[in-house]
Computed example of a mutant assay.
Amino acid sequence: MTGWAEYSLALAMFVASHFLPRLGGLRERLIGAVGRRAYFSAYGALSIALLVWVISAAIRAPHVDLWPQLPWTRWVPNLAMPLVLILVACGIGLRQPFTLGGRRGAAFDPARPGFAAISRHPLFLALALWSGAHLAPNGDLAMVILFASFLAMSLAAIFAFDARARRSRGGKAGAFFARTAILSPAPLINRDWLHANARRTTIRAGIGLVLWVALLHLHTMVIGVSPFPV
């Protein structure tokens, strides 16, 4: 299987893997059968494998230019990626259960929102920024479909998880949304927030920047295309 057929199948399976488990309580039944840790470990491995497949299939798909790659377009992802990796590093284990990577068993305290005051969906926002930024230098049809799909999925997930938070928190939802944000730099100039969160956030942001530098230099070897502007 080659060309558009493989790419279409890979993309369909990747999208289906994120929606089918939620239908008819399938995910809950699987968790009950094998346990939460085993389920999410297997699901994470499957997601990574499908992601690698869909990206490699997009690279192998027939090349159809929608717009040319101009030198300045490579600056778009290069400027966005440091923020993307900082959001990823700060978002893993977020004390906000209604998002990707959030601690499911954690009770959210509006008085101490932590990084959720900056972004309550840092991993979804990182995915949206990553995919949106990579649209600029990738005007090939297969890549446009790939990154546009990721962008749409991440934005849809933000609204879906916010709706779940409103249903789950009921009368407490107002406090939850008042003390969190999709993306806000305001806590970074708030003395109380900085006193409680500056050290932890700085360490995680530093880890994110280290990951960014590493991925920047591994990009050519893994993807086969240099990310540096020319």
Rank of each mutant, 00 (worst) to 15 (best):
Leu129Ala: 07
Leu123Gly: 03
Pro71Ser: 15
Gly102Cys: 03
Thr73Ile: 07
Val144Ile: 12
Pro71Phe: 13
Val76Thr: 07
Pro77Ile: 09
Gln96Lys: 06
Val144His: 13
Trp72Ser: 13
Leu70Lys: 11
Val76Phe: 03
Ala80Met: 13
Arg120Ser: 02
Leu79Gln: 08
Ser131Ala: 15
Leu129Glu: 06
Pro71Glu: 12
Pro113Ile: 00
Ala117Asp: 02
Pro82Val: 11
Leu127Thr: 12
Trp67Pro: 12
Arg104Ser: 14
Cys90Lys: 08
Met143Thr: 14
Leu85Thr: 15
Ala111Gly: 08
Ser119Glu: 01
Val88Ile: 15
Ala80Val: 13
Pro113Lys: 02
Gly105Lys: 03
Asp140Lys: 10
Ala89Ser: 10
Ile145Leu: 15
Phe108Ser: 02
Gly132Pro: 04
Gly139Thr: 09
Phe98Glu: 05
Gln96His: 12
Gln96Pro: 00
Gln69Glu: 15
Pro113His: 00
Ala107Ile: 11
Cys90Asp: 04
Ala106Leu: 01
Pro137Ala: 07
His134Thr: 05
Leu94Glu: 02
Met81Thr: 13
Met81Phe: 14
Ala116Cys: 02
Ala80Pro: 05
Pro97Ala: 03
Gln69His: 11
Arg74Trp: 10
Asp109Ser: 01
Val144Lys: 09
Leu66Ser: 11
Gly91Asp: 05
Ala80Trp: 09
Ala136Thr: 09
Cys90Ile: 02
Gln96Asn: 12
Ala116Glu: 01
Ser131Leu: 06
His134Leu: 07
Gln96Tyr: 11
Ala142Glu: 10
Trp72Tyr: 12
Val84Asp: 08
Leu85Gln: 12
Ile86Met: 14
Val76Ser: 08
Pro97Ile: 02
Pro71Lys: 13
Leu87Ile: 10
Leu87Trp: 09
Arg103Pro: 00
Ala128Ile: 02
Ala107His: 09
Pro113Ser: 00
Ile86Thr: 11
Ala116Thr: 00
His134Cys: 05
Asp109Val: 01
Pro110Ala: 00
Gly93Val: 03
Pro122Cys: 01
Arg104Cys: 02
Ala128Asn: 05
Ala107Pro: 00
Gly105Met: 05
Pro110Leu: 03
Leu129Cys: 06
Arg74Val: 06
Leu127Asp: 10
Ala89Gly: 08
Ala111Asn: 04
Gly91Leu: 06
Arg104Ala: 15
Thr73Arg: 15
Arg95Lys: 11
Leu83Val: 14
Val76Asp: 06
Leu125Pro: 08
Trp75Ala: 10
Leu127Ala: 15
Leu123Tyr: 06
Gly93Asn: 03
Ser131Gly: 12
Leu125Thr: 11
Leu79Thr: 06
Leu125Trp: 07
Pro110Trp: 04
Val144Cys: 12
Leu87Asn: 04
Gly105Tyr: 02
Thr73Glu: 07
Pro68His: 09
Asp140Arg: 14
Arg103Ala: 03
Leu127His: 06
Pro137Val: 07
Gly132Ala: 14
Leu87Gln: 03
Arg74Ser: 11
Ala106Tyr: 08
Gln69Cys: 12
Gly102Thr: 07
Leu135Asn: 13
Leu87Tyr: 06
Gly132Ser: 10
Leu85Val: 08
Ala116Ser: 05
